[in-house]
Design a protein around this nucleic acid. Structure first.
Lengths: 209, 209
DNA sequence: CTCTGTGAACGACTTCACAGCA
DNA sequence: TGCTGTGAAGTCGTTCACAGAG
C-alpha cells in the first residue's frame, strides 16, 4: 500500500484548493466545478482536475465536485483531518508571533510547547503555550508524539536545533532560519526564507535606480 | 535591452547562492567552486553553473568563482545592491514581528512605514517604524517611491488593501494573508501561506493516526 | 449539452557530458 | 589536471483534447 507518486507542485496546490473550497463552502456553495476553482486561483481547469486525479475521482461529469466531501477528502490527504501536535523552537519575536498566529490552529495544528535557551524567555508563556528550556525538548516531544516542528531561531543555532529535533522523533521541520539544513532522508524540511521572498520580488522590479 | 528569460526556480536559487556566499565570505573563503556551493545547498553543481550562466560568465575555468565579486553581481541582479524602500500593511502580531525582523534590513530592505486601521494600532511605533492610518498610504508610498509592500492583514481585508497598494504605485506584494490576490499584470505577488507550508509537511508524514 | 478523468502532446527545467581555458 | 560554460539529452510537470458519464 504505497501512495501515488505526485509532483510536489501538485501538493502545494492541494492546500490552495482546500483553502478556496473552505471559503466557497462558507459562502454557501455546495458544488464547485474545476473551472470555478481554477479561475479563483488563476490557474487552468485542467490543472485542477489533473491534481485531484492523482488521488482519486472526486467529481461527477456534467456536475462538478460537491464542496464538503471534497474538503474532507483533501484534509485526509494532507493529514490534517485529525489534529497534529507541533512544537516551536525559538521564542523570539518571530517564534512568539507564530505561536499567536491563528491560522495554524484553524488548519488543525496544535502547538503543545515552545522552546528557547535564553533565561529571559523560558517559563514565560506565549500565545497560551509555555516556553521550556531546550534541554527538555526530547522528553516533551516524545511525550506528545510530536512529528512537526517550527524552527525560528538565529541561523547559527539552526543546525544544532535541527539535530536535536531529528533525534527527538520529529519528521517535518518548517524552517524560518535563513540557512540550509541538513537532515536524515526521512525528515523533511520546508524552507521559508522571508527575506529571500522579498529578494525574488525585487528581482522582478528590475535594476534598482 | 531586455533581460534574459530565466526560469523562476533559478531566480529562487539565486537568493540561496547569495546567502551561502555571504556566509562563506564571512568564514574567509575568497574563492568558491560550483560543487562547493552545490554541496552546501544539496543541489547539483551543473545546476549552479547553469543558473549563473543565465546572467553571465562569472567564473574562471580551473579556478572557480571569486566570492566577493560574485556576491556583488548577485545583488545587482536581484536589485538589492541599493537599498529598497518597503511598507508593511497590517500591524497585528505578524506585521509587527516582520517589522522587527532583522533579516530584511540585512538584505537591503528598508521599512519606511506601516499601516493599519485599528485606532489602537495607528500612531504607535513598531520596530522603529511609525504606524499610520491606511488612508495615508498612497501619499506616503508615493513620497518615498515605495515599490515593495508586505501584506499582513486578515484575509477578508487583503484584496482591498491590494487594490490600494496597486493604485499607489507598488509593483511587488509579499502576501502573508491566506487568500489569492488579484492584481494587474505588472504587479507581482509573492504568496507566503504559513499554514499551507505546514500542511505540505503534514502530507509527507502520511495519514494521521 | 456540461463537466470530469485521462492518455498524448507539449513545454519547462534539470542533468549530462564535453570542449576549452587556466 | 581542475573547473567553467554550454549545447544536447533527458526528465518532470503542464496543457490539450476528447471519450464518456450525468
Amino acid at each position: 500500500m504505497t501512495r501515488p507518486d505526485v509532483p510536489n507542485p501538485a501538493v502545494r496546490r492541494l492546500t490552495l484548493y482546500l483553502r478556496q473550497l473552505e471559503q466557497l463552502l462558507e459562502e454557501g456553495a455546495d458544488r464547485v466545478s474545476s473551472s470555478q476553482l481554477a479561475q479563483s486561483l488563476h490557474i487552468t481547469a485542467a490543472q485542477v482536475r489533473k491534481d485531484l486525479g492523482y488521488f482519486g475521482a472526486f467529481g461527477r461529469p456534467g456536475v462538478g465536485y460537491r464542496t464538503a466531501p471534497l474538503i474532507d477528502a483533501l484534509r485526509r490527504i494532507l493529514g490534517t483531518d485529525k489534529p497534529r501536535n507541533v512544537i516551536v523552537v525559538g521564542a523570539g519575536d518571530l517564534g512568539r508571533a507564530l505561536l499567536r498566529y491563528k491560522g495554524f490552529k484553524r488548519k488543525g495544528f496544535n502547538f503543545v510547547a515552545a522552546f528557547d535557551i535564553a533565561p529571559g524567555k523560558v517559563h514565560r508563556s506565549a500565545g497560551g503555550v509555555e516556553v521550556h528550556h531546550l534541554r527538555e525538548l526530547p522528553r516533551i516531544a516524545r511525550r506528545h508524539g510530536v512529528e512537526l516542528a517550527v524552527l525560528a531561531v538565529p541561523p547559527e543555532a539552526a543546525q544544532e536545533c535541527t539535530d536535536l529535533l531529528c533525534g527527538a522523533g520529529v519528521r517535518g521541520i518548517l524552517n524560518f532560519a535563513p540557512t540550509t539544513l541538513t537532515t536524515p532522508e526521512d525528515v523533511a524540511v520546508g524552507p521559508v526564507d522571508l527575506a529571500g521572498h522579498l529578494e525574488q520580488l525585487s528581482y522582478l522590479l528590475g535594476p534598482s535606480r
